[in-house]
Design a protein around this nucleic acid. Structure first.
Length: 180
DNA sequence: GCCAACGTTGGC
DNA sequence: GCCAACGTTGGC
């Protein structure tokens, strides 16, 4: 009888669903935004913004089913130099339909969405803080403690990612930001 | 600008 | 339900 192949030691990194399961009273997230499109500067100026334009089902489901009022957000600049977590935001209120899905001709128009059966939802997001020291993606990848963060994983494109509380705290620490 | 890694679409 | 083609994301 051939021996069983040795058990692979490689521990499977947690999925988004598993990270969400670990949430307590408050959830933690990472939201990606391109600074040229809507950066932390814009959110600071506006104070609060509707997080429009999410057109990915997994991201939508996370926003709809698992985000809660008061959850905290790592604000991440993608397509930036360097890509980095640049500050904090906060989820405000409940999910509601993304109005852009109904605007014919808009980039985010969805012909299959109706007001009775909207397809895309969003949340409002409020400015919370700007990090004195941004935390580049490269630094997140360099830290073994953060290897379970979705954003550090190869090929991960989700623009709405749950973050484990300990990872959230660690990133704040790296940013020189005292407990939110 | 390149391109790997995805997600979506649509023919069959 | 399969899967090739296509479009997008986003680091590098």
């Amino acid at each position: 009888v051939p021996a069983k192949p040795p058990k692979k030691k490689a521990p499977k990194p947690p999925t988004a669903a598993e990270i969400v399961e670990g949430f307590g009273d408050r959830g933690y997230w990472l939201l990606k935004s391109e600074p040229d499109a809507y950066g932390l500067d814009d959110l600071e100026r506006d104070g609060k913004a509707a997080w429009t334009g999410v057109r990915n089902y997994q991201a939508r489901n996370l926003m709809r089913d698992h985000m809660r009022d008061g959850d905290l957000v790592l604000y991440y600049h993608s397509n930036a130099d360097p890509p980095a977590v640049v500050g904090l935001a906060r989820i405000v209120g409940d999910a509601y339909p993304d109005p852009l899905q109904f605007q014919s001709g808009h980039k985010y128009f969805d012909p299959k969405a109706t007001k009775d059966e909207p397809r895309w939802l969003l949340r409002d997001v409020a400015f919370e803080a700007r990090f004195a020291d941004i935390v580049p993606l490269a630094d997140l990848k360099d830290d073994p403690a953060l290897e379970d963060m979705l954003v550090t994983r190869r090929g991960q494109r989700l623009s709405v990612q749950p973050v484990a509380e300990e990872d959230f705290r660690k990133v704040c620490q790296m940013a020189g930001y005292d407990q939110p």
